[in-house]
Design a protein around this nucleic acid. Structure first.
Lengths: 237, 237
DNA sequence: GAGTCCCTTATAGTCATACAATTGATTGTA
DNA sequence: TACAATCAATTGTATGACTATAAGGGACTC
């Protein structure tokens, strides 16, 4: 498989990535408040032990997510939270481990409820042949895992299944949700209980409806799954 | 007003911003295909007449939007489109002027239909006092503009009104939509016709419902506006 | 005293160069 | 053929110098 098409996450193990993560974490946790200006570049470079080159690349990453803005003579300030792009995979991954944010998946569920049924409906209408094949492959994997249950594998495959639906919607704006969803699912691996059965029947209903091209049924099936599953995990609780 | 809370857009007039825009445009338009690797850094720096520093900062911006990934000895390759974050203000702004993308607002409308009614409902339930005040101020401006009609001002204020609703939803994941919406509305200024009346009554219904704290009514009012308005512009056509 | 203009200065923005780290490709060897 | 060592191309990082920008203070005018 072409690497350009493989990974979803954006874990950047380089220095600039680490710096970006470190600062982002402080901003997201509120340790650095909105409106506050960061110490100057030389100071922070010294403090973090990196060169200006790496540091500035890190800042560009934060900038492009709407978290900071820089001006000469002023410095780099943290923008208002309303400008942060929470629908960004990296940003979500940075939130992992921030204690005060661990309940944010509840907010995400409210978004899923609004958008995912419609995504399923679109997928039923517009999924290409290739997308149907991949959806089938993924669903079959889910069935296998449901039989011989493994928590981590289930979550990963479940996320992939739902992501595939968003991709199959044929709408550019729906696609990013699939990626965000995958990022959120990674959280659940960290602190989800090992018990509870999977909603394989509910997923089958969604799958069947999409394959049958029945958008109304797909819409309802998705709604039904989200209704049953308080955690948005594909697990009944 | 604190500058950290003022601007929504992210127009970066610096060199790295220009470079980012230039390359992003070529990627978005398909001139540089998915999976393709860019020429090496020294080559592109020469070609564009900038230093590696500025160039690499530009690439970091694209990277953080999921558009490219870099590896030593391999180069920088364009990632699969499914990884691009279309729910990003800068990315949307870069799309302006790409001829083949000018109908993408139709896709966006499909997203709005799914999410905005729910945002209105949440806003009715959870808008803070300050948010209600700002919403009121904005709505009053809309009314004034509707009287003494000005196309550009209408679009700008209309966008601000809808953005305020997303912010008032109290859900971190709904907020970015408001910003994306503003970016999309900027397009309309470019190629919208000057005729057509504004849907001030429909907007008033949404506003009243939110102020009354009636989420069901707010939901329906938003649906109704989107139904009536084929372009999602707040204008009947 | 209030306002305007200009100068100073701190800060980010840009450049050039050198070196380090990574990894695909090549070559060598069993 | 399979595996290991080497090479080389490309990005990653560091450093130092210079430029551009704009906040803040001071002198001047009204």
């Amino acid at each position: 498989m072409n690497t350009a098409f493989a990974n979803i996450g954006q874990t950047n193990s380089h220095l600039n990535g680490q710096v970006a993560r470190e600062i982002a974490t402080k901003i997201l946790s509120g340790e650095i408040a909105e409106g506050e200006t960061l110490p100057s570049e030389p100071v922070l470079c010294e403090k973090m032990g990196v060169s200006r080159t790496a540091f500035r690349e890190a800042i560009k990453i934060l900038y492009s997510k709407g978290m900071v803005e820089s001006k000469p003579r002023v410095g780099t300030r943290v923008r208002c939270k309303t400008n942060w792009n929470f629908l960004d995979v990296q940003l979500l991954e940075w939130m992992v481990g921030i204690e005060t944010k661990k309940d944010i998946y509840l907010e995400f569920l409210d978004l899923r409820k609004a958008i995912e049924p419609q995504a399923c409906a679109f997928a039923a209408e517009r999924a290409t042949k290739e997308q149907r094949i991949e959806l089938t492959t993924t669903f079959q994997r889910m069935c296998a895992i449901a039989e011989d249950f493994d928590q981590d594998q289930w979550i990963e495959t479940d996320a992939q299944f739902h992501r595939m639906i968003f991709i199959s919607s044929g709408n550019s704006f729906y696609v990013p949700f699939g990626n965000v969803l995958v990022a959120m699912f990674k959280w659940f691996i960290l602190f989800s209980s090992k018990d509870g059965g999977v909603c394989i029947d509910e997923h089958r209903e969604i799958y069947d409806a999409i394959m049958a091209g029945d958008s109304t049924r797909a819409f309802k099936a998705s709604q039904s799954l989200m209704q049953k599953d308080k955690h948005g995990l594909g697990k009944s609780s």
